[in-house]
Structures are given as C-alpha cells and as structure tokens.
Design a binder for these strands. Structure first.
Lengths: 97, 97, 97, 97
DNA sequence: CACGGCAAAAGCATTC
DNA sequence: GAATGCTTTTGCCGTG
C-alpha cells in the first residue's frame, strides 16, 4: 500500500474541513449583513434618514477608537518632542495633543 | 405639555434602538471574521497555502459556470494582447467573438 | 473579406493600447513609491525616526480632510437636530460639533 | 546662544523638507491613480470589461511561469475538494504531491 | 436600470 | 513569521 496516497487523503480531508468551516463562517457573516440591511430598511420605513443613522454609527465607532489612536500619537510625538518643540511644526503638533 | 418633545423622544428611542442593534450585529460579524482569521492560521500551520485556499473558496462561491465564463473572457483578452495561450478554452472563446 | 475579423483586430489594438497605457502609469507610480522609500531611508540615515515622520504625514493628511468631514457631519446632524436635541444621543452629538 | 536650539531648528527644517517631499510624491501618485481611473472609464466606454482587463494586467505582472505554478496548486486543491477538473495541468500537479 | 462615488473588506507588501 | 498599514477590490447607495 502506498503511504503517499494515505497522506494525500488525510491532507484532502483536512483541507475540506478548513474550507467548509470557513464557508460556514462566511454564511453566518452574510446572514448578519442581511440583518443589518433589513434593519436599515426598517429604519427607513420608520421615517429615519438612513444616512443620519449610518453617520451616527460611524461617529460612535470613531469615538471609541479615537482614544487609542490619540494615545499612539502622543507616544510617537513624545519621542520627537526634544527635537521639535521649538519649531512651527512641533508647535502645531503640540497644539493638537 | 409639548407633543413635539414626546414625538422627538420616541423617535430618538427608536433611533437608539436601531443604532444599538446595528452595532450588535457588527460585533458578531467582527467575531466571525476573527474566527476566520484564526482558521486560516490553523490551516497555514497544517502546511497549506492559505492564499490558494482563499482562491479556491472564491471560485467555489463564483460557481463553476461563471468561473468558466470569466476564464474564457480572460483568455480572449490575453489572446488579443498576444499572450497566445493556445488552450481549447481560449480557442473556443475566441471563436465566439 | 470578413468584417468581423477587422472588428476584432481593431478591438485588440484598442485593448492593447489601454493595457499598455495603464501599465505605463503603474510603472510611474511604482517609481514614485520607490522614491518615497528612498526618501524615508535617507531620513532614517539622517537620524530621524521614520515612524515619527510617517505619523506626521498621516496627521497632516487627516488634518486637511478633517474640515470637510466635520462640515459633512454638521450638515447631517443639522437635519436630525429637530428630532434629537432633547435626547442623550442628540446631546452628545451636539457636544461634538 | 543655545546650540541645542540650533540643532533642533536644523533638524526640524530637514524633517519639514522630508515631509514635504514625501507629500509631493504622494500627490503625483494620486494624480497617476486618477489617470488610471479615467483610462479604465474610457475602456469601459469602449465596451471592454474592465474587471477582466484588471485581471489580465495582474497576470501579466505575475509572469507566465508563476501564473501556471499558481494555477497548478489551485487545481490540486480543487481536486482534493472533489472539484474534479480533470485537466492535464491538474493531473500533473496532482502527481507532484 | 445603468452609472459613478463612497465606505467597508480583502489582499498585499513591508516592517520589526 | 506576526503585525501594521497601504493599496486594491468589492459591494452599496443615491442619481440621472
């Protein structure tokens, strides 16, 4: 019996498992996307401007991420401060912090 | 009592509901995306070429028919550019022009 | 003489023209990217922290777009103000403006 | 007179130079991207399938050799998944396993 | 109902 | 080789 064939079969089974699990997860994601779309349609039906809603959602998301981003900026600029505090570029950077 | 205020409050409550439900769905999607990423890492660890896996999954989603159709057009264009691939598929696609 | 063949030839020539022009533009872009990379290497050689430079550049880009984005937000929220000014959601939105 | 300040000023000037040169290059890249977009719009207007054109361009960049190699692996994986394509390419690729 | 613009997602390269 | 960020692609929505 050829061991290579067995190896190939086993590999094929694992591959199939990976692919199917991935596709399953994708299906669930698609279903959730459909739910979101439906939700927006519902909101529109209730008289809301969906653009406003989308904007609010984006705004909230940015708001949550803003802190981390801001902290990263501060960290980076702190490294540069010794060099640039006495320059227009450095001043404007400082003003933003 | 001002009826407009009540209307506004009710509308805002509905809006808030929409926004929160949407964000909840988004969180679930993000979690599934993380699962997919993890899955691909696992596949990579098992020695598979994840890029190829992704391609195969895409092709499966496209469907065999559309895939062939798309490939035929690609062959036609390549032929036009002098990239003579000389496959039966390319030849028959060319004939269709 | 077969008119279809002529048509095909002409189409092929146009296609080739499009493809080559596109690739030419791409080459120029790649050259510019190489210049950018070189520039960063030079900066690094001059003792600068390239991460800082990249951050500054990103920051400046965001800064320029910020105004337009902010204006768009205001525009959107103004439409919603009549509805939501008397709610926490509306209040927080207002505070951001 | 404080030498550190001078050093800082000089450093800042160099930094500013780097940043501005980088941004200039970026602008040029953006302009070229716009040209590409325009070009594809033109191609679309001429009746071409721009998505296919993009694919062909990508394949050309990849090079014929790598392209065939990649395709062979894809066929192998598809075979393992039961998508029996039964092409010579796929068969020979399979044999290599 | 096709088109173009815009925002989200994916793929890719580069960095450490 | 993991992880960040940039480029490209894809899907979506409003508009003519």
């Amino acid at each position: 019996m050829d061991a290579t064939v067995n190896t190939g079969v086993v590999a094929a089974e694992r591959l199939q498992s990976f692919v199917e699990r991935y596709e399953k997860l994708q299906e669930e994601k698609d279903a959730l996307s459909a739910d979101q779309k439906e939700l927006m349609a519902e909101a529109k039906g209730a008289g809301f401007d969906t653009k406003v809603i989308k904007t609010v959602i984006r705004d909230r998301k940015l708001g949550t991420g803003e802190c981390a981003e801001r902290d990263a900026l501060i960290e980076v600029y702190k490294h540069a401060l010794g060099m640039f505090v006495d320059t227009p570029l450095g001043q404007s950077a400082l003003r933003r912090l």
